[in-house]
Nucleic acid binder design. Structure first.
Lengths: 136, 136
DNA sequence: CTTGAAGCTATAGTGACTAGAGGGATTATA
DNA sequence: TATAATCCCTCTAGTCACTATAGCTTCAAG
């Protein structure tokens, strides 16, 4: 049995976020101490770790809810879980591609060696989309 | 002189977003027609393009405000604009690195070939952080 | 002159938290 | 045992950058 603070330390999820997850129905409301403080069990910790990890991987909360429900029915086909992961992979790959174009453009920007705004590549590039190296 | 709809079409910024930018003070309130509809000039279009492009590059609105102010004083040193771009480049590079770790993990996830939840790699991997290939 | 698309304001909702106020509980030390 | 320090409680509101909705008015084409 640990307090919310200890749960937070063990999982890396901030205290207000834990309470928020409880409110959102991602984790069950835990037992309380005599003084009305939350007391978590190991099961609660595992569930929160699952959530934390999934969030780190960028899964939205609704998807995590689905994954959690699925994980509670080990005899069901894993079809849906698989689908969520694949869909997410696609999104991540698109985000990477976009960011790499952006990186190239910013690298160019940050090499600006003008002294004043009037010949600063940053402003110029942002002002005129037509000057971009890449299309976005 | 064009309407908000035309401005939207020309810049790719959605109509409610244009009005939102006006409210946030990113763009000036334009002139109005007799019937109280917004009428934009070419200057307004250029400013909105600047904003749109900057947003696509992921600059937060506050940074864009600064960049816009800077661009209005072409005789000032471009120091700040340059700083904003460099700072942003760092953030982007960190985001890319994180996403690529994530991509590797998701690829592994999406190759799950279990039939039921109980041996689905997706659920398993999310449940046990210790199984991750990478540290995040 | 009518009709349908486009525009107006104002308010509320989104996602995933984060911050603050104003209090009560628990724990470590004197 | 007293007390101080730390932790925890609820509730409300704020963040960012939009997005959606409702109920109305205006514009442009035929």
């Amino acid at each position: 049995m640990f307090s919310i603070g200890e749960l937070s330390r063990r999982t890396g999820v901030k205290i207000p976020t834990i309470r928020y997850y409880e409110q959102m129905g991602l984790i069950d409301a835990p037992e309380r101490s005599e003084g009305n403080q939350r007391r978590y069990t190991k099961a609660g910790l595992q569930r929160l770790s699952f959530i934390h990890h999934s969030r780190e991987l960028g899964f939205p909360i609704e998807d995590i809810k689905t994954l959690l429900e699925l994980s509670q029915h080990p005899d069901k086909p894993c079809h849906d879980a698989h689908g969520i992961a694949v869909r997410h992979l696609g999104q991540v790959q698109r985000r990477i591609a976009k960011l790499r174009r952006l990186e190239r453009e910013l690298k160019r920007l940050s090499q600006c060696d003008g002294d004043t705004i009037s010949d600063c590549a940053v402003i110029e590039t942002l002002a005129d989309h037509g000057l971009c190296e890449t299309d976005h």
